[in-house]
Design a protein around this nucleic acid. Structure first.
Lengths: 190, 190
DNA sequence: CGCGATATCTAGTCAGTGTCAAGTTCGGGT
DNA sequence: ACCCGAACTTGACACTGACTAGATATCGCG
């Protein structure tokens, strides 16, 4: 699994390019990402990224797919280790804040190809974690899906508001604790 | 009110530029907005926008400020005409969907100058509508602010998830009704 | 061991963009 | 009537994403 020091021609470039892209997105946001700057940081020529990803949207598509995989794993881990749906929501917020670059790309579908097979497949596990548990808590199907959407909306809104700097005044201190407190206002069961 | 065919030198350009920008953002998103295309649509030279707004961030700053004004008015109107905090949340979603361009700019602070005096001032009324009513419903201050953050997160998350195309499968039909249903899962009072 | 095929990457080019500096045109106040 | 300044134009520069042709290194295969 450990890649050799220089597995190929110059190294395994796709991974290096994604890493550089994530770093750059953390600095300037996903919209201002520059393929040429990514190439520069990876130490390759400006045309190299196009070979692996086709175009800018292709690179961001890879980032989004990776993000969905990581999110699905994080949510599943939270549910399995605590057994509480509430902690899935907290894990969602934790993921958004700790993987900001992934998260911001994932929810800007105009920046990548959200119908790419890799993305569609990577989305499945996280979807299951968001919609599955409420179905066990609630009786009828419509309440379950509405409850799931409410819970998703709550944590997604909290995460995006935090990332856009809108909550720092109202919620000082650590965001994870605040997120856990916020989820207390939801009444899914019933 | 109706402006003459060519009221001034060329018309009242700032307004025309903002209108063209909103139209373009609706088509390609706020990140892919091009100042030159905006100028083209307004029928002026490519350098004209810079004269009025300084740079691209300046134009988006004006859009954001206008957006906060409209949002504040919409929320206040909803509260005054119904007396229910819940309808403020529904109005928030309605604003996001009907003023998509404004909304998307407002919550991407990296695209404009969010510390601009005009923006800061325009934010006041909407902030009051988001934080005010819960303070009347709840006893202590910390519960009030947490409840406000929860309510804001819920409707903000719903709106952004809808705009990014993540709810069309789970919530078919009209989003406003769905938003009203979603707010039913919140228990602010108590 | 060698050689061709192919993936990988480089380098050059083109249209389009944001921003800046310098011009040009027009309006209103004195 | 004049002229100062605001509104806009024009041209330039560096940068970007995308495309192309070409160079180079790695691997398959004898």
């Amino acid at each position: 699994m450990a890649p050799s020091p220089r597995p190929y021609h110059h190294g395994d470039l796709p991974r290096a390019l994604i890493a550089a892209a994530l770093e750059l997105i953390d600095e300037v946001g996903p919209a201002a990402l520059s393929l040429r700057e990514v190439a520069r940081r990876a130490g390759v020529s400006h045309g190299a990224p196009a070979h692996h990803f086709g175009d800018k949207a292709g690179l961001l598509t890879a980032v989004a797919a990776q993000g969905y995989e990581l999110l699905g794993a994080a949510l599943a881990d939270a549910f399995e280790s605590t057994g509480e749906f509430r902690e899935v929501g907290v894990a969602y917020v934790r993921f958004a804040l700790s993987h900001r670059a992934h998260f911001e790309v994932m929810f800007r579908p105009e920046l990548y190809r959200d119908d790419d097979p890799a993305v569609v497949a990577a989305r499945v596990p996280s979807s299951a974690m968001l919609y599955g548990p409420p179905a066990d808590l609630s009786g009828d199907a419509v309440t379950a899906v509405n409850g799931a959407v409410a819970a998703w909306s709550l944590v997604h809104g909290f995460a995006t508001l935090w990332l856009s700097g809108n909550l720092e005044r109202a919620v000082p201190g650590d965001p994870e604790g605040a997120a856990r407190a916020i989820t207390g206002f939801l009444s899914i069961r019933r």
